[in-house]
């Protein structure tokens, strides 16, 4: 799998937000979750592009559901796949093992 074995930093952020939102997740609630939890006001377009990319990688899956309003187009809702959960855990494990034994000096250098 090489490069795509570990998702990128922003991809992880989006996946975690997806996990936190749970059911009915799409770009707007994901964006809101990232803003609320991390304080980062990212571009919705980035969330949009990232969700699509993660879906291509098989880390998230989407279903289109018709909206309530008559004129609306179907809305695509996203959720993590098993592969997605795996990738998140792998990334976390890797980061944790890299951190093991590392101590930040007092003056932060």
């Amino acid at each position: 799998m090489g490069k795509s074995k570990y998702p990128g930093e922003f991809e992880q952020v989006v996946m975690l937000a997806l996990a936190r939102v749970g059911d009915g997740a799409y770009s707007v609630p994901v964006h809101a979750e990232i803003l609320e939890t991390s304080g980062r006001d990212v571009a919705i377009a980035s969330v949009y592009v990232t969700l699509s990319r993660l879906e291509n990688k098989g880390l998230v899956a989407s279903v289109a559901e018709p909206r309530e309003e008559a004129t609306g187009r179907p809305r695509r809702f996203y959720s993590l796949t098993a592969g997605g959960w795996d990738a998140l855990q792998r990334s976390r494990k890797m980061i944790d093992s890299m951190w093991a034994g590392v101590e930040v000096p007092e003056d932060g250098r």
């Binding site: 770009s27 964006h31 809101a32 187009r73």
Partner: peptide, 14 residues
Amino acid sequence: SGNLLRDLDEGHRA
């Protein structure tokens, strides 16, 4: 663009 603009509109209204 349609989807993205709709999402932006939702965020804007919120």
